[in-house]
Design a binder for these strands. Structure first.
Lengths: 328, 328
DNA sequence: CGCTTTATTGTAAACGTTTACATTTAACGC
DNA sequence: GCGTTAAATGTAAACGTTTACAATAAAGCG
């Protein structure tokens, strides 16, 4: 009953105190001063739980990421936080580990009214699982989405991005272009694989034997392992498109350990443009995603939807960019 | 008034509904069933804001990081989340950018009662700034701490860790050992520098000219830049201790570009053992911090303190480990 | 079967706000 | 000054829970 104390201290009613806190309604300057003085001497700070209960909003948004030690997600999360912060929202960050049960548990925070809305970076396959229960909840899908699902989304055109990357390799004269990283659970991986095949097809090329190759985790170790396997299956391979940067860096290492040179013998292109890409030698050519802006747009979309629940669900496609460095 | 609807549907009072939700108190199996059925048909989920208001706890913990695109913090955050999750807490993650104002703003979430406690990874110099206002608030300092401040903390012995690393270099016959990364704002950096100097001193060595060298950001670019400068100032330098892994990787690159070889001409040791360290060639020798366990311990400490506010503030020192790879 | 104990349920207050509405006070025009 | 209007303040209900306490029903005992 803390606002009560302030009211007593200032000799006014709690309504007046509330009015000066939120400066809503009219209050005479002299009483405003008195109230502010009381707040200062008592060190009062309005209880947000009570306020939230009364106003039926938490000003918290739930962010679901499959793995936040992945720098790519870190960039997006930063964008979300920046935009949300500007509008007075905070972020409840949850690592689902791409586990549907975890996701369901965390989504309770939404039905619980502990959060006002959610941004989900989980694989679309997972999103689909919880789809029915969450149809009417305010959330947006980021990076992984199904445009047909009726859920607002933001992302890039993964297929086109992959096609662009592979075309670049073709233009530079490469003819035996392999791909690694096709994890079926992730939409981005399926799309990139599709774009890769499109580019080959339009140039009248076929994937070298063993390509495209699926990964389980799109990380350095898998990149190394798969590339080693690939090189022995396709010795003529002269270029490699990887679905993520760590994968590409692992591949670079495998190529090197096989006694070949990047980019002379094998050109390599990665995906995402995380900081790592600029830290290795040769520097990694890669498809950049606008991570910060992806996050910002997701947050903006969500908050607009919260303001006006009748808003039709929108999709936002952001542009990718091929960053040409040394590896291709 | 949603619990009301459930009560009406089940033909009981709201108290009984509350009892079956929290299964506290006695309720006859038959009525429990009836209530559960009502909950199911109505799709009811208890409003956490209301519950939190009533029980005066939010089951949220505030995590303040200076920069969460830094993989080192990601590891710690993951540990915090794991431990907190096990105990039914969630995480309000805030990126302060090491800005005191931002930190102050975020800490309002604590005084607001929107969060029950906080874990702070910000530089100790920042922590000190807000110290007076937060003395009585429940929080623990992680990695950056001042043992004398009376705030519970968890971290490693940075000075000893640095000494160990430099001793290792000395044992391997290096005599002109430089250090980069001494950012005065961070306790970890000051301590590592101190440890570096200790190791040199006990071996009767002196730092090569220009060493130790301060950084502003402990990242790849600074590592490259400073090392380049260092190499021209101290051509006889044969080893380098860097206060972070990205710094060390930048240094490796600078050494390479100067036409020298790692580790033959210059041995390099980094700090933290983030994934990057195993992805570069030569693989980086580095001092590992138990990131996950640091986070877990911080969370545990905080939650224990929340359970029993009278608990004397404790400090927890975890062990570091020198991971010997190829760069030294 | 009546009395005492215990298990089950209900009533109502409390948590700390915001806000519609009522009331009081000040301001204004004449 | 007086009536009218506007500004400032207060009252009380509401948000959706939990929980102390009261009340009722069931059970046990002689």
């Amino acid at each position: 009953m803390s606002i009560n104390k302030v009211a007593r201290e200032a000799g006014v009613s709690i309504a007046t105190v509330s009015r000066v806190i939120n400066n809503t309604g009219a209050v005479r300057p002299s009483t405003r001063e008195r109230v502010e003085a009381a707040i200062a001497t008592l060190g009062y700070s309005a209880n947000r739980l009570a306020r939230n209960l009364r106003t039926a909003e938490s000003r918290l948004i739930l962010v679901l990421v499959p793995d936040y030690s992945n720098p790519f997600y870190a960039g997006i999360v930063r964008g979300i936080d920046a935009e949300a912060g500007r509008r007075g929202y905070h972020m409840l960050l949850c690592d689902t580990g791409a586990d549907p049960d975890a996701q369901r548990t965390y989504l309770e925070l939404l039905t619980n009214r502990m959060a006002d809305g959610a941004i989900c970076l989980d694989p679309d396959s997972i999103q689909a699982l919880t789809g029915e229960q969450t149809r009417h909840l305010p959330w947006v899908a980021c990076c992984e989405f199904d445009a047909a699902s009726g859920v607002p989304w933001v992302g890039i055109d993964n297929a086109r991005a992959a096609t662009d990357a592979v075309r670049f390799l073709i233009e530079r004269g490469r003819r035996h272009i392999a791909m690694i990283g096709g994890d079926e659970r992730f939409m981005y991986a399926r799309e990139r694989r599709r774009g890769y095949l499109t580019a080959l097809e339009e140039a009248g090329l076929t994937p070298p034997p063993g390509s495209p190759l699926d990964t389980f985790e799109p990380d350095f170790d898998d990149g190394y392992r798969l590339t080693t396997r690939l090189l022995s299956a396709s010795p003529r391979c002269d270029a490699l498109f990887a679905a993520s940067d760590p994968l590409a860096v692992g591949a670079m290492q495998a190529v090197h350990d096989a006694g070949l040179k990047v980019p002379d013998d094998i050109a390599i292109i990665g995906f995402d443009n995380i900081p790592l890409a600029a830290m290795v030698r040769p520097r990694l050519t890669t498809v950049a995603q606008p991570m910060q802006r992806l996050g910002e747009n997701a947050a903006r979309l969500l908050l607009e939807q919260l303001n006006d629940p009748e808003l039709p669900p929108a999709g936002t496609l952001l542009e990718h960019e091929l960053i040409v460095r040394e590896s291709a």
